[in-house]
Design a protein around this nucleic acid. Structure first.
Lengths: 227, 227
DNA sequence: CTCGAGGCAATTGTCGACAATCGAGTTGAC
DNA sequence: GTCAACTCGATTGTCGACAATTGCCTCGAG
């Protein structure tokens, strides 16, 4: 049993907060294997706290679908099944499509400048790294985050950033091999930004939906080949 | 301080489950006024349990945005602001639009028969009750539930039914006066079902989005007139 | 040998008490 | 008279112990 170092730097208010963040990181990054069964007592010892705050952290993780609890039985790390990932992509298509539509009318000029600068940085970086996907992948997340926030719709932001994206990031860490075609994705990003700049909500939504839909189809094809 | 009767009938597994359901009902139905500050000790006494299970219930309600917690300060019943309701309708438009699209291809024939029967019942009932909105409103929820489930997308169902619709029901109970134009809504429902029957996903999504979008605009107009 | 019932260990659910933190009211100085 | 600091009360956060439920293992019968 290994003791885990908690983030004391950012002095989060309560012990439950610290445990929650530490556990979420451990799950998303794969330190705790998907499907593994974990006991409350073990975890409490490992994180150096009592079972009270730990249970609170677990409840929050459960509401984010990162762990699964069954009463009187125990806790399992969320198992990532492929069909669940596909389902998530339909949610993303609907929600981020709407985010792009709203962003086209609600983004400020400086926000659009910011996302253009981000793309410019990607272009240089991508020219260097070609297909080394890691940085591109984080950059991809950054791009989507900016558009989501650009919607200026609090409920939408909270839903996507606060609840859904942790699950998606977990899948990315685990199934790291899905080549998400950086060059093509980059071109699609460019077109979406053009639509935002033109304040064309209809077009922005359509392009975003195609972007996510083709990413989903790409994954589905990979799954068919190597299940 | 009034003792609250808990549902002992359906013998829910844990005390936390019972408190959660009772509290959720109390909030959605307005027994606990929005924005009111409540103390853990009071609630624990009122529901005849300890603070442990109560805190678990509060955690779950927080993740559904029915209560707001600030550390070391306390709990407030979620205050329903009008702009938040509008934001929710954009989520509904995106998600239920997608649900309708998926339902058009994934609904079974018997599910479609069921929703047609539901509409037929509404037609007779509506002819009788004209604009008495209550039953129509519950029927409206039933209609939407069926299409959501018809998507056969677990993540989408869980998100809409398990997380979003409780907030929407809360608003319905509070702002009960929004005449949601039963006749027009009924016609729109009919057309959506026609699209489902024709297995036309594009059309079903478009009609559902218009349906929800016009409901939102209707609310926005009411808010402008009587803020 | 297989199946079912019963007991046992382990884990979770629940409780009450203690400690930490925040907000309000009061008191004092400028 | 106003502002700031301090004290006090109340509320939440945390802990450890006890009770309840589950799953597994053993034992016995067919």
């Amino acid at each position: 049993m290994q003791q885990v170092e908690l983030d004391e730097d950012r002095n989060l208010r309560t012990a439950a907060d610290r445990v929650f963040e530490a556990l979420q990181d451990a799950i998303v990054r794969g330190d705790l294997k998907p499907g593994a069964r974990v006991g409350e007592t073990d975890l409490a010892l490992r994180f150096g706290t009592s079972r009270g705050p730990l249970r609170e952290a677990l409840r929050r993780l459960e509401s984010r679908h990162l762990v699964e609890r069954t009463p009187h039985v125990g806790i399992r790390i969320a198992s990532l099944e492929q069909h669940a990932l596909i389902e998530l992509y339909f949610l993303r298509e609907a929600l981020e499509g709407m985010a792009a539509r709203l962003a086209a009318t609600h983004m400020t000029d400086s926000e659009i400048e910011g996302i253009k600068a981000l793309l410019a940085a990607h272009e240089k970086d991508e020219a260097l790294k070609a297909d080394t996907a890691y940085f591109q992948r984080e950059g991809d997340l950054d791009f989507h985050y900016r558009i989501i926030h650009g919607s200026h719709n609090g409920a939408l932001i909270e839903l996507l950033v606060g609840e859904l994206y942790h699950r998606i990031r977990m899948y990315r860490y685990q199934f790291s091999a899905y080549a998400n075609r950086p060059q093509r994705a980059f071109r699609e990003h460019q077109r979406i930004v053009e639509a935002l700049e033109a304040r064309d909500g209809d077009l922005a939504e359509m392009l975003m939906r195609r972007h996510i839909s083709s990413a989903r189809q790409n994954i589905e094809n990979h799954l068919k080949e190597s299940p």
